[in-house]
Design a protein around this nucleic acid. Structure first.
Lengths: 215, 215
DNA sequence: CAAGAATGTGACTATATTTAAAAAAATATC
DNA sequence: GATATTTTTTTAAATATAGTCACATTCTTG
């Protein structure tokens, strides 16, 4: 029986990967959980426990081998394979995602961009062509797409989601300001920018009121 | 003695605000925590407890008044005031933030965009002018800016952060792939898009391996 | 081969969430 | 119009989850 890995742990994995990548660039061969914890401002035991969810990558008396741990976490994150992506919405946000170099590098390949505006049809962005929303369904039937990024307004997002789900897409990266309703086997990863900004604002206010408070 | 509000609670507040906004649009006057919980797929007790962190907004036997709760949560999130923002980086992502209509509506006003590329200097985006990075420091001294959004590469983000901090900016909305080091009184809200995408990827893999597992 | 280093793991503590009990307000009933 | 009943929030207690600590075990290294 495999234990389910909790979302809090999953959330931390990309950050480990990022720091390991930097250590790798610096040519550092080994690192202890203690040294990594100092670098990342988390406890060493959390690092050890997080990693142990996926396996024992360290070695007593030695620590962790940077190149090998980097590779292992990469595998855990699925960066050892290619992911075929499409972007729905050719606005600034959609274009930003489609032309983001580091996604390519990590194996997330944008295979198409879709928009409702006819004047954009056929335009190329970063070697990927913009197509019409009307062509989405057929495109999805002809190409094996793993992930769809939604960068369209609320209503359009709901319509698009129905198409995506009906064609069998299993992962949606949602930037629209709405919670998508999808079948159980479809994963949705939300990036609610407004929510994030409001959180920042709330924290600012909390900070202020705390400061003004006679403690 | 005021109890500190935990980040998990803060994270949920914008979502409540979003749903309350939709109820308001639909002209719904009152709602019980139970009905809201069905709508939002969280437990009713969590809603009540979350809201009670900020005050008693409900009424026994009645539930919550939608317009008034919407307004109260708005205040909590700081949407009753104007926030002056700048965007650093006039790439697609920066432009997306600068031209995002709903930020304006919620009181987050973009007052300037900064970029290193001289050819963009003076261009207008959504009634806001693009300025040179060299002019950033002076601009910040002459204008009261509350929030700076960082949409530049790693190295540029670190340089910009130093300027921002030195001039006294207290809130940074960070889209760069790096953890910023700032004094204790400066708040950083990270939006790590790559991390988010990797998390989606990891979850997809987890889902797959679970499916293939003989349980 | 022995001393030191650092992981992996189980026990403990803290935090977060849910359930349960109590209190208050609104509506129904006489 | 007073009283009983229902609704639903509050407050408190219990459970579940997450994070930390500490140590026995294992590996490295001189």
């Amino acid at each position: 029986m495999k234990k389910e890995i909790s979302q809090v742990v999953i959330k931390r994995m990309p950050r480990y990967y990022r720091y390991l990548g930097e250590l790798l660039e610096q040519g550092i061969e080994r690192i202890s959980s203690k040294d990594l914890s100092d670098l990342m401002n988390v406890t060493a035991s959390q690092i050890r426990q997080d990693l142990n969810n996926f396996g024992g990558f360290g070695q007593q008396g030695y620590g962790y081998n940077v190149p090998s741990l980097y590779e292992e976490i990469g595998k855990i994150l699925g960066l050892d394979r290619e992911h075929n992506m499409i972007v729905i919405g050719a606005g600034n946000l959609g274009l930003a995602l489609a032309s983001h170099a580091s996604f390519d590098k990590q194996g997330f390949m944008v295979r198409g961009i879709f928009d409702i505006r006819p004047e954009l049809n056929g335009k190329m962005v970063n070697n990927v062509s913009i197509m019409l929303m009307d062509d989405l369904e057929e495109f999805l039937k002809e190409n094996k797409i793993d992930i769809a990024a939604l960068t369209v307004p609320k209503e359009a997002a709901l319509v698009s989601t129905n198409i995506l789900v009906s064609v069998g897409i299993k992962a949606i990266w949602n930037f629209a300001q709405v919670d998508l309703e999808v079948p159980e086997d479809v994963l949705v990863q939300n990036v609610h920018l407004s929510d994030s900004l409001m959180r920042l604002s709330l924290n600012v206010i909390q900070r202020e009121s705390k400061k003004n408070n006679v403690n």
